[in-house]
Design a protein around this nucleic acid. Structure first.
Length: 510
RNA sequence: GGUCCCUUCGUCUAUCGGUUAGGACACCAGGUUUUCAUCCUGGUAAGAGGGGUUCGACUCCCCUAGGGACUACCA
């Protein structure tokens, strides 16, 4: 029987989601959409010590920003609620008990000190320092203690954990959609704690139990989970769920652009690009880390960029809308090797998506920012600014940053230009030009340009030598949008003011 | 250290035994813009090394090297 595809993204709320986590969520989402299945958001907060306030909201907010809608999960509920593991606490114990009853797990009473001692001893004798089939018989657990003592300890509420009882020598194999067959010997594994002394399950137990109860069909997660996947396979087997065990797909990691190691939360802004989707303020330290959203990245660009970090279609297309990805995403085409994050590519994607947005839309987003900067402007004018500047920038907000002179008269003039091109005769020319264009019936770019060239010819001057002075007089900058379009946008009154001011202020350097 | 995973241009990658090893970003050059940028055209640039298997290997196998992950009562 074909089961309905159900996948989940199951982050732990220990801080802001980083961009690698976002990609994992994205791949889950795309896979669900592609296969007409469900995408769930489950919060794995079984470690109360690492809980960070605001982290869960941050995740939900990230999903909203990127448009990754989920079918069940925190905030919206669903048939398998609750979706927060801390609220599912009562569920897990019975499965741990079931494992004990079937002799697949046991109680362990060892203290931290005893555990440490065991490990240092084993290490000293060059033995693998694991709590396993070999070492467990030297420890304090329900396999070594008498039945009465175990009962007594439990009755006295002595702290205990429940450990998985792994066979000494057995082969565990499973098929990973991305990596193929993975084989591990139980001799290399250890008797992982499934149930902690604080009454909470560990990740391993909670994850398997919830995936089973929530009818998850595919576990798509980061490669850091690959080493514990065999343990999870054993859990499915011992719990009697092997026939409905999800298929695994372990995603390659996102690596730092330079040097070695995986991209981690700590990298923050040190690398010149955000590691987080949204800006994050650490509640403990107050430290702020930048986010893609606040940096001006477009959701569609982030999705496209992220989807290509580890996945690629069979042809050469690179611009993929979310809908395109729905149609074409397959786990089989996810690559095996880790991907280094590339800032330039991210910028390029954003540039491309910015060009696709219409000017009015961009202008509307920019208006509050422009007003906040103190620019006296409006939507109509802003839209024209966007039209002039859009293709030059990677981020919409750069239009305001690079195009200050489109809103305010320059207060200083590019010295490279003034020192080289602001020569004798230039002020006179500009004044004459002003007079000429002030009589123009329409203040329009082509007219302004024709007048400029005609005047230069009349005065036997090289227009090329005068273009830069004109630009600098009006904008203060050496570069910028096509000069006559800029004049048209600024309008007669403003151009008059600026040129007059420049002529009066710029000193001819001889 | 042990276990597992990975290895094509600087980066992301295509190739599923036979290709002049393709694309994109970045970089370089030329053109457009009498500006900067954009844009257009072109260019530089890769199968980690060594063994096999095969008529033939980037592709399959083995070894070596390198990178990464994991190795908690964290996820």
């Amino acid at each position: 029987m074909e089961r309905r595809v159900r996948v989940r993204f199951a982050p732990s709320p220990t801080g802001p989601l980083h961009i690698g986590g976002v990609r994992t969520a994205l791949y889950n989402y795309l896979f669900a959409k592609k296969n007409g299945g469900d995408f769930l958001l489950r919060i794995e907060d079984t470690d109360q010590n690492r809980f960070v306030p605001g982290a869960e909201d941050y995740i939900v907010e990230t999903f909203k920003w990127l448009g990754l809608s989920y079918d069940e999960g925190v905030g919206i509920g669903g048939p398998h609620a609750p979706y927060r593991q801390s609220e599912r606490q009562p569920i897990y114990k019975q499965y741990a008990d079931q494992l004990i009853a079937n002799d697949f797990a046991y109680y362990a009473f060892d203290t931290t000190e005893e555990l440490d001692e065991m490990r240092t001893k084993l290490e000293a004798s060059k033995m693998p320092s694991k709590y396993d089939a070999a070492s467990r018989m030297t420890m304090k657990n329900s396999l070594t203690l008498s039945e009465d003592e175990v009962k007594e300890r439990l009755a006295n509420n002595e702290p205990y954990v429940i450990r998985l009882k792994l066979p000494r020598k057995e082969e565990v194999r499973f098929h990973d959609i991305i990596r193929g067959w993975v084989v591990v010997q139980t001799a290399q594994m250890d008797d992982k704690v499934l149930y902690k002394s604080d009454g909470m399950p560990t990740y391993h137990l909670a994850n398997v139990v919830d995936d089973y109860l929530m009818k998850i069909t595919h576990v798509i997660r980061g490669e850091e989970w690959l080493p514990s996947a065999p343990l999870h396979v054993m859990l499915y087997r011992y719990l009697g769920w092997e026939d409905v065990m999800p298929q695994f797909a372990h995603l390659p990691l996102l690596l730092k652009p330079e040097g070695n190691g995986k991209l981690s939360k700590r990298d923050g802004d040190k690398l010149g690009f955000p590691v987080f989707p949204l800006e994050w303020k650490d509640p403990a330290t107050g430290e702020i880390s930048s986010g893609y959203r606040e940096s001006g990245y477009l959701p569609a660009a982030v999705i496209n960029m992220l989807s290509f970090l580890g996945w690629h279609p069979s042809d050469n297309r690179e611009m993929f809308s979310v809908e395109d990805l729905f149609n074409e995403f397959t786990l089989e085409r996810v690559s095996k090797n880790g991907a280094k994050f590339d800032l330039n590519k991210a910028l390029w994607f954003n540039h491309e998506y910015l060009q696709l947005q219409n000017n009015a839309e961009i202008a509307a987003k920019l208006l509050p920012l422009a007003l906040a900067k103190g620019y006296k402007t409006n939507l109509t004018y802003l839209e024209k600014v966007v039209a002039l500047m859009k293709e030059k920038v990677n981020f919409a907000k750069e239009i305001l940053e690079k195009g200050t002179y489109l809103f305010e008269a320059p207060t200083k003039y590019d010295e490279g230009v003034t020192s080289k091109k602001w020569k004798l005769g230039v002020p006179e020319f500009l004044t004459a030009y002003l007079e000429k264009i002030n009589t123009l019936p329409t203040y329009e770019a082509t007219e302004l340009e024709t007048s400029f060239k005609n005047l230069a010819t009349e005065l036997a001057q090289n227009p090329g030598q005068l273009m830069q002075p004109l630009r600098v007089a009006v904008s203060g900058e050496a570069g910028g949008p096509p000069i006559f379009e800029m004049l048209e946008l600024l309008g007669k009154e403003e151009v008059n003011k600026r040129i007059t001011k420049a002529v009066a202020e710029i000193v001819i350097v001889t």
